[in-house]
């Protein structure tokens, strides 16, 4: 499973999106295209990504740029995995 597919699955599970998770693309905007994506949801996704990939996000990583769309989030995860 690619990193994108894993991130897509984690977002879907964390937000209980059901079948809608499959419609997420790299270009899907997190704030805007997903109504469930509020502050608590972001925190849940962040924690789930850390647990799943065994990575730790720094405070600076939780930024508007990294959470702009799914592709940005996937890039962040991949950079943290490489650094680990």
């Amino acid at each position: 499973m690619s990193t994108f597919e894993q991130v897509q699955k984690i977002i879907g599970e964390s937000l209980a999106l059901g079948d809608r998770a499959e419609r997420l693309t790299p270009e899907s905007r997190l704030f805007g295209d997903i109504p469930e994506f509020d502050s608590m949801a972001v925190l849940t996704v962040v924690t789930s990504l850390e647990d799943h990939f065994d990575i730790v996000f720094d405070d600076e990583d939780i930024s508007e740029e990294n959470f702009a769309d799914v592709a940005c989030l996937v890039a962040l995860v991949e950079s943290k995995r490489q650094a680990a």
Binding site: D38, S39, M40, V42, L43, I62, S63, F67
Partner: peptide
């Protein structure tokens, strides 16, 4: 983890505090 909400709320236009 709970205090991280201070960072997350900044993504939605709130004040950024880690």
């Amino acid at each position: 983890q709970f205090l991280r909400l201070g960072l997350v709320s900044a993504l939605a236009g709130g004040r950024r505090e880690g």
